[in-house]
Every structure is written in C-alpha cells, then in structure tokens.
Design a protein around this nucleic acid. Structure first.
Lengths: 346, 346
DNA sequence: CCTAGCGGTCGGGACCGGCGAGTGCAAACT
DNA sequence: AGTTTGCACTCGCCGGTCCCGACCGCTAGG
C-alpha cells in the first residue's frame, strides 16, 4: 500500500530525485549513488538508489553524461523540481535588510532605483541581474507640445510615475502657436489618467470621424503627436554580467557564454522573453532551451513582475544564470526585490 | 659610422624591434630569433638578432615570459611602437564603404547613429566598441517650463543637436502660470546658442545681483531650473563585448576579463578615461596599465574624438581590446568613423 | 523488496620522456 | 669589430602509460 503523489511518482523516487537535484545544484557535478545514500535521510543502500535512478532516467528526468559518472538532472527534471519539489527557503534576514536598505536608500529617479536593485540582485545571487521597465503603458499625466524651431515641435509626455518621454515631430510651416496650445489642451483632456495604448485608438477614430472640434491643422498635429507615441519602448538594464563567467561550466564552454553576451546586447529577444513573466504575478522561471526566443543554452532566468501603486504591472526584474543555480535561495530573493520595488513605486 | 635615430636606437635594432612587434601583434605569441631572421628584409643570422634582442630587453622594451621562449614587447615597448614605429595602414576600401553606408543609413536619432557606429566598429575590429557622448555642452536651442502637477514642473531642454533632456523640479505652491512662462522666456533669451556651462555661471550671478528684471518667484524657478541642469551627464554605449572573449589570452586568464566586464559596467572610470581622448583631435591610444583610472590589465583603448558642425568636440568613439591588437588597421578605422560621425552631425 | 558483492567501464591525475623552440656563450670567420 | 656558426642547456608542451577512484548494471542472497 503505497502513497502515490499526483506526479505519478512514488514517495521514495521523489525523495531520491529531490536530493539528487539539490546535491547537483550546489556542487554542479554529477551525483552518484554512494553520495546520495549518505545524504538521504532514510537509510538506503547505494544499490537501491541505483535502481531508483535507473527508473528516473527512463522517465527522462535524469541522464548520465557518460557511463560511470553520476547522474545529472535534465531540463525536464529541473522543471519538475522547481514546479513541485522545490522547498523555497526563507530569505536570510541580513539579505532582506540589505535589499530594503539599498533600494530605499537609492535616489528618487525610477531608473536609478531599478539599476540599484539589479546590481544588488546580481551581487547577492552571483548571476547577472536584469530589469525590463516598460515605458509604454504607464498612465499619462500630462502632454505638451513645444515649438522649438520653425517646422519642428517637441512632444513632451509625462507619465503618472514621473517618467518623461519626448519626441520631435515635424509641423507644417506657418503653424500658429495657438494650434499647438489647442492640441495640447485637446490631448490633455482626453489622455489624463489613461494609458497610452488605451487612449490612442479612441482618439484616432474620433479624429477620423471629424467629431472633434478641431481645425484641420490642429488635428494634423494631434495625429502626428499620437503617431510618435506609438513605440512600445522598453528599457533593459543588465548588471553583473561578469558573474556569467564565474561558473566552472563557463570556463569550459566559452563559446556559449559568447553567444549569451551577444544575446544580451541584442536585447530584443531577452525583452520578449522577460515580457512573458508579466503574466501572472508570481516568480516565473525559464529553464534552458524551454523557449525558442533566446539561445539560452544552459542558462536559466528567474523573473518576477513588479507593479505600481495601482496594482498594474509595469516591469519585470530578474536574474540570469546557469541552469544550475540555487533556486531555493534566489526565488524568494527576486520575489522580495520585486515587492520592495512595487512598494517604492506606490 | 652609424646612423642614430632620435630615439637613441640604431637603425638595425629599430628594424628588429618593429618586425618583432608586428609579428607578435598578428600571432599573439612570443617571437624567437629564428622566425625573425626569416621575416626580416635584410639578411641577418638568428644569433645577431639574439644579441640585438638582448639589448632591447635591457632597455625594457622586450621581455621573455620564460627562458627559452621568444620575446614579447612590454607595455613600454608597445608605446614606443605606436608612437614612432607604427606604419598606419590605409583603410581597406570595402571597410571605408561599409562604415559610410552603415552610419549614413542608420536612423536620424543621434543616439541611434552612435549605436550603429559602435557596433560596426566592434564588428570590424573584433573588439568591444565604445562611445561616450557628452550630453552636457551641446549648445542650447530652447528651454521650456511645463507645469505638470501642483508643485511640480518639468524643465525641457532642447539642444542644438536635437538632443532633448528633461528634469522634474519642485515649484512653490500657488505659482502663477505666468511665472513659468516668464522664466522660460528669460532663459531662452539668454541661453540660446550658448552652452550650458557657459551660460549658467553668468545667469546665476546676474540673479544674485538682482539685476534681472524678474519677480522673486520667477527668479526662484529660474535658479532651480538651472541647478538641475548642472549634471555633466554622459552616456556610454558599449557594443560587442563578447569579442573580449575571443582572444586566446582570455581563455587562459578569465579572471582578468571578469574585472574588465565589471569595469565596463561601472563605466565611470571608463568615461573618465575616454574623456582624456578629447584633448587633441587625433586618435589617442591607451596601452595596458599606463593610467591608473581603469584596471585595464592587458587591454588597450584606441579612441578618437568627434566634433559637431561648429568644430566643437562633443564625444569620443573608440575600441577596447587586448593590448595585442592590429593598431595599423584599427587606428585609421576609428579615425575615419569619428570623421564620418562628425560629418553627419553637421 | 531490499542489500551485498562482483566485474566492468570510464574520466582524471600523476608521471615520464621526447620534441622543438629558443637562449647564451665562445670560438671561428670576414 | 662585428657577424656567424656551433654547441650545450633550459623550458614548456604533447602524447603515452599507468593507476586510482567513482560509478553502474547485474545477480545472488536475505
């Protein structure tokens, strides 16, 4: 009569698997049956463990780099581990304090806070730290057109979060100053408190239907201003990349690290990947080549979204390291950092 | 009767030295007397060359990593080489074309142009590419104060080069809108066409002397606006860092590369170093640990300032790689890129 | 169902010797 | 005197061998 867990594994295999992964995570080397039998809480001979491991290997959770080496978890195995078996540690009190102190202590600018948080995370986790701050869908507070030269005007957009954005647009020659003022007023009346994406479509259709009480020139300015606001710009901050060279694996397979650096610089793929972490509000974990977006051969990402005062997700912060990283320690770390940032944005 | 050059070296030693460095630069390995004797245009036996090399070693220009290895130039030797002995090659026509096409073809935004140029440089030189764009002393075109919330105003500064900058300032409660307009007008009248640094001191003293025809409130705004404009902000763009892992040396001495990455991220030192390249208008070269600012152990920087239409230096572009890089090829490359950028800014 | 033991496999580290590149010195050459 | 030749010596590197330790799978026994 045996207890069967939902994942279709008996109690013993599960325990063996869990300890194997934990041992692997700290050592980075293949784990053999002997080591495991010493480590396991229940008394179990190496031979029995070998049998269990053979089963696990058949399930695709483990593999042996070569005969007569220990076993290593596969990506599938790691996934199972983090999904079900991982016991998430408590954040060490000193780390908790460090995070709060350093983040609260940094300057006021939002970008500065994020930079601080990232480099802190990278330091604590000894991985690369990442932040994506989406500039796009913050609610708007104010829009202003400023003439800067004949035929040129500047659109200044101030977000609710204090973020400021500006674009240069071309204006028709001989545009009266009043048109700019009018355009500003028109947009401010409609945009305030809404997100850009939100308002844009509505205003554009309104303009097309000529329901707006604007003269042609002003309407043109408004349209042009809106168009430039389209760009879904994201900013990506990366810190502590040098940690990517720390691991033993990196020394062997330098080529992999090279492509990783290139990917980070290209950044587009990385941003797209991190965007996936926005859905759902917990920590998300991407292991190895689970997704095609990013050639993270042998790398994992642990990322958590952070929200502003209105509970709206405005960005993602996380950590990038080898698949073999201390998930139990890093997950609460990322989680807590995201929360602290969220609190600070409120 | 022997010809003696100004650097206190005979003709033969100089030739030997030059060829040794060139050989080293392409191979990266210590160069022995036999190899050199084959390479040298004049017939000379290995033994004679050994004698010459012994002299050069005594002068501190060469050193042998161990007995019975070839010689390698010291930093002092490299310095001498680039200063006097280096024959600067012509830029290959296809490279010239590539540079011009890619830079001219990129978008209009100045930052985008620089990013393109940097990643191009990094690609061609197979090193990391660097740009420092100084935001500070572009001439100003327009300044505007925009009220965004009670007690908050935005200062928008538009530079001659189209660069836009903004800062949030606190304003006294109950500030009339007219004060902001007045402040804008006041500053525009005085700032236009001058650089920030230029105008700032003058205006501040004028304010203190109360010579300005402004009411107290407006004066306060102007002062506050000016204060926030102080920051000598620089932007650093780095591309192609993965090339730093290319060289054979890197594989051996990963630790060095690690600190290099950290330095690049910290960026402050790097910027300070690159700023040195602004003085004088040619290409400047920093070899190894010649300067204390930056722990560029084993790294060199080749950098050139670029100027705007007014001939004012507004930034520095360059390349960061191992000391052992093909100076003859890279120097004209950096030089030309800087010129193309300058032309584009005009 | 577990355990103990056996035979087999494989990677890694230590050791050794030969090879080649390069040096320095001294003697011979021009 | 400067240059070349020859020679002895020093290293670092490479490949081979050997041994050890860590594992595994299998089978027999509790």
């Amino acid at each position: 009569m045996e207890y069967r867990a939902s994942n279709g594994m008996g109690e013993r295999p599960r325990e063996v698997f869990r300890h194997l992964v934990e041992a692997y995570l700290t050592s980075g080397e293949p784990v053999g049956s002997r080591t495991l039998s010493q480590r396991l809480p229940v008394q179990l001979s190496p031979a029995s463990i070998r049998n269990v491991m053979a089963d696990l290997e058949a399930m695709g959770l483990l593999y042996a780099p070569h005969t007569s080496a220990g076993r290593v978890p596969t990506e599938k195995g790691l996934r199972l581990f983090v999904d079900g078996l991982l016991e998430i540690g408590q954040l060490a009190p000193d780390e908790r304090v460090a995070i709060e102190a350093r983040i609260n202590g940094s300057g006021r600018g939002i970008e500065e806070v994020l930079t601080q948080a990232t480099s802190l995370l990278s330091g604590l986790s000894r991985c690369a730290g990442l932040v994506v701050a989406a500039k796009q869908d913050a609610a708007l507070k104010h829009v202003e057109f400023v003439a800067v030269a004949p035929g040129k005007a500047l659109v200044v957009i101030v977000g609710d979060d204090g973020q400021v954005e500006n674009r240069l647009i071309d204006t028709p020659m001989g545009l009266p100053a009043s048109a700019l003022v009018e355009a500003s007023n028109y947009l401010n009346a409609r945009l305030r408190g809404r997100t850009l994406e939100d308002a844009r479509a509505a205003i554009l259709t309104e303009l097309e239907d000529e329901r707006a009480a604007l003269d042609a020139l002003t309407a043109k300015i408004v349209a042009e201003g809106l168009a430039t606001l389209a760009g879904p710009e994201k900013v990506l901050i990366v810190r502590g990349t040098s940690h990517l060279l720390d691991t033993v694996e990196a020394q062997i397979d330098l080529e992999r690290v090279r492509t990783l650096f290139d990917d980070i610089e290209r950044k587009a793929d990385l941003i797209r990947l991190l965007e996936l972490a926005r859905e759902g509000d917990g920590v998300r974990i991407f292991i190895g080549s689970e997704n095609r977006l990013f050639s993270l051969s042998g790398s994992s990402i642990v990322a958590a979204p952070y929200a502003n005062a209105q509970g709206k997700v405005v960005g993602v912060i996380g950590v990038l390291g080898p698949t073999r990283l201390n998930y139990g320690r890093i997950i609460p770390m990322v989680d807590h950092t995201a929360k602290v940032i969220g609190r600070l944005l409120g």
